[in-house]
């Protein structure tokens, strides 16, 4: 049996609901985008339903502690093709087993969710580290990113708590949405402008002192290096090259 859903978290949770209602035996979950019709396998299209999804999520929250709920959510944010099915199987497994079943690291889906969540948390942590704000002429601190996973929802609290006294925008250039903090609340925004404009902030839009601080930072980065200990392999291991485009000191 193949279950086809629309790719949203709501759809995924509804699929779990439908599976328990129908009990069709072993089922594979595929999103509409990745599904290829199969001549020998019956398929079932899941209609996303808010109420059913909520019921599943609440039920899950009773079986799992907060850390595990976060892990499940993080795994979903990874957007990896295999993870939809793993998450689907994982949730079914959790419902069918007594409390504490999530600790069974010998179970393939449990391990898969743990490891994927770890990757997403690592990406989130890297964003917290590698985001470099540029101060614009109107006093907003801006940064464009294109993370491997959809980590923007995980960044809200960190940046809101830390930069409480400055306006900031973090924009995901790959997924075309971002966060804007207006000194009170964080809002999700979508900017209509051309993406290429957002990628490279032009000089006349920047605060007059922005270049000075960028220069100071570059100089600091150079001075704090100990040449006798050069270790390029370790360096790129910690700061993979795909992130260099964010980093003021690497430009």
């Amino acid at each position: 049996m193949i279950y086809i859903f629309d790719g949203t978290l709501e759809g995924l949770l509804t699929a779990v609901f439908e599976w328990f209602e129908r009990k069709p035996g072993v089922a594979t979950l595929k999103s509409k985008g990745t599904h290829q019709p199969d001549a020998f396998m019956p398929s079932f299209e899941v209609q996303s339903d808010r109420e059913k999804a909520d019921r599943v999520w609440r039920g899950l929250a009773q079986k799992l502690d907060r850390a595990w709920m976060r892990r499940a959510y993080c795994a979903y944010l990874s957007e990896l093709p295999q993870i939809h099915h793993d998450l689907f199987q994982f949730i079914i497994y959790i419902f069918q087993n007594p409390h504490g079943a999530a600790q069974n690291y010998g179970h393939p889906q449990v391990l898969s969710i743990t490891q994927t969540a770890r990757k997403v948390e690592r990406e989130k942590h890297r964003m917290e580290a590698f985001i470099r704000f540029q101060k614009t002429a109107d006093g907003i601190f801006y940064c464009g990113i294109d993370p491997d996973f959809n980590v923007i929802p995980l960044l809200v609290n960190h940046f809101k708590n830390r930069y409480a006294d400055q306006q900031w925008i973090i924009y995901d250039l790959k997924r075309h949405y971002g966060l804007f903090y207006d000194l009170q609340t964080v809002e999700e925004i979508e900017m209509g402008t051309d993406i290429s404009l957002l990628k490279k902030t032009s000089q006349n839009l920047l605060d007059e002192k922005e270049n000075l601080y960028a220069d100071l930072w570059k100089n600091y980065f150079k001075s704090t290096n100990i040449v006798a200990r050069k270790n390029t392999k370790l360096h790129t291991q910690h700061v993979p090259k795909r992130y260099w485009k964010y980093l003021t000191e690497k430009l």
Partner: peptide
Amino acid sequence: GLGNGHQSGICHTYTEDG
């Protein structure tokens, strides 16, 4: 104000010596 502590710390970049 500005800033807060982060329990596990954050390394914002790495020098060329790693």
